[in-house]
Design a protein around this nucleic acid. Sequence first.
DNA 1: GCTTGACCTTCCAGTGACTGGAAGCCCCAT
DNA 2: ATGGGGCTTCCAGTCACTGGAAGGTCAAGC
Lengths: 149, 149
Amino acid sequence: MNISEAAMKSGVPPKTIRYYESIGLIAAAPRTGNGYRDYAVPDVETLRFIARARGLGFSVEEVGELLELYRDKDRASADVKKLAKTRIADIKRKVQELQSLQATLETLVDCCHGDERPDCPILEELASEHLAKMTDGALMRQLKLRGRG
Amino acid sequence: MNISEAAMKSGVPPKTIRYYESIGLIAAAPRTGNGYRDYAVPDVETLRFIARARGLGFSVEEVGELLELYRDKDRASADVKKLAKTRIADIKRKVQELQSLQATLETLVDCCHGDERPDCPILEELASEHLAKMTDGALMRQLKLRGRG
DNA sequence: GCTTGACCTTCCAGTGACTGGAAGCCCCAT
DNA sequence: ATGGGGCTTCCAGTCACTGGAAGGTCAAGC
């Protein structure tokens, strides 16, 4: 089948399939006489596997590991569990971070009258030294987390 | 003061300060005789403002708006409040998304025996059609959210 | 047979928000 | 004058795609 059919059946856009091939996440598809990529049912299954794992927040690199593990008959399920647990820990950290962000913003919004008067508590808070220690910590954690979620 | 001193006082790394200048988030700093960037106290304050706003999860573009609003004497605090509220909504959505991801992963991990046996519920779930509807929805939302946090 | 339009191919560039590194000045202390 | 740190610029890379241009291919309709 053509790439667009594989895309439809797997839920992975054609561009992304080509991209996955280009980075070596999936093997290069065989070509038909006209040079078109030719996919079979197992390829679509692999793509669905990838889509699900990505949907669960695994990075492309981690998906690569999962695929290896998946194909490896002697894989230890402990490895997979470990990968999933790491992900859960990442998510928990991220959620906490976001919730403290949310609390701060909500406090700010609650203090903001929100009419046309030019003095705004949010901007004042942003400009003041007050928030500094708090958000610098948050910023640092944010910076370290970045590229991870 | 030199860029590294401004960096230390503001908590924004020199590279990042130059980057902010290059994208026009901050004005180009005046130069001393030797071509070094020369910063004053208000510049550091601006950088701290930026650092705090970024720490609160505002995108660089949004920080630009906040800075404009901050400098604009006739700004309406309603505009700022709106921006903050949008951010809160974004965060809430993201948190929910992450929590449902977490729940799914935890279910999977709980079902995974985690020993050396090669059959692993996580991989089976990933490979099966079961999870499809669930994570496809998550994937789609994920895709739409991407680049937003 | 020709056109049209929808496929497919490749490659290049851009996203956001930086970060690393190279090459090359500049300044100060020893 | 030599060393070690500044500073400057620009280029490239990160992550996971996505958009678009330029061009080849295919099936349908006239």
